[in-house]
Amino acid sequence: MKKHLALSVICLLAIKLASAQIIPSFEFGLKGGMNLSKFSHTATFATGNRAGYLGGVWARVGGLGFNFQPELYITGKNVTINNNNGTVNKASFTSLDVPLLLGSKIGAFGVGGRFYTGPLFSLALYKDQNLGAALGNVARLNYKDQSMAWTFGAGLDIKKISVDLRYEYGLSKQPYNNGQDETRVNIFNLTLGYRLFSL
């Protein structure tokens, strides 16, 4: 009897895991969190990590064991720059970030782990390009004066709550110091998300 019960439980778990990965699904939610930004090191200056913020929305479409997760959020990035001449400057960037992530999820009964990777387009927001202009550039696929990164990450879902830790490796250089210098920005993000609804 105990063997039959254990076998039944294992079969139910296997069916649940398989259906969770095969049946197409859609989720949408909010996310917010903090980041640690760091410039790539050069011979002329060194940098230190400083905390920033991010907040926005995410969506996830899944099926056949994989999922596609586009996101849209505002990010504040802060870096301390120590120049060789002894001066210390603090650089701040605000951007509209658009990660396009491909990943997989394992788990059942509302608890699961996720692994993902993909490109991230970072559209600078400043006095000459506000949020509306940046969204227009996304729609027109106009990425002039913008930057790209590649994202690697993992997440944990518990019912409607999700926690994500990811690393963004800068692929293109971002200007600073009134456009006189440029460098790559690498970022660690820790975010908390909430699923508003799923289909």
Score class of each variant (00 low, 15 high):
Val111Ile: 15
Val88Phe: 03
Lys77Ala: 03
Leu102Met: 10
Asn85Tyr: 09
Pro70Gly: 09
Pro99Gln: 06
Thr75Asp: 14
Leu102Ile: 11
Leu72Tyr: 07
Val79Ala: 08
Lys105Thr: 05
Pro70Lys: 13
Lys77Cys: 00
Asn84Ser: 13
Asn82Thr: 02
Ser95Lys: 10
Val79Ser: 07
Tyr73Trp: 12
Val88Asp: 11
Ser92Thr: 06
Tyr73Phe: 15
Glu71Gln: 12
Ile81Pro: 02
Ser95Arg: 11
Phe93His: 11
Val111Gly: 04
Leu102Phe: 11
Asn83Met: 09
Val79Met: 06
Ile81Arg: 10
Glu71Thr: 00
Leu96Ala: 08
Val98Gly: 00
Gly76Thr: 10
Ile74Ala: 13
Gly86Lys: 01
Asn83His: 09
Val98Phe: 13
Leu100Ile: 05
Asn85Asp: 15
Gly110Arg: 08
Thr80His: 04
Asn89His: 09
Leu102Lys: 02
Leu100Arg: 06
Leu102Glu: 03
Asn85Gly: 09
Gly112His: 05
Lys105Pro: 00
Phe115Leu: 15
Asn78Phe: 02
Leu96Tyr: 08
Ile106Arg: 10
Thr87His: 05
Asn84Pro: 01
Val88Met: 14
Thr75Arg: 14
Leu101Pro: 04
Leu100Cys: 01
Glu71Leu: 02
Phe115Ser: 04
Leu102Arg: 02
Ala108Trp: 14
Lys77Ile: 00
Thr87Val: 01
Val98Asp: 02
Gly107Glu: 15
Thr80Tyr: 02
Ser95Tyr: 13
Lys90Leu: 04
Tyr73His: 14
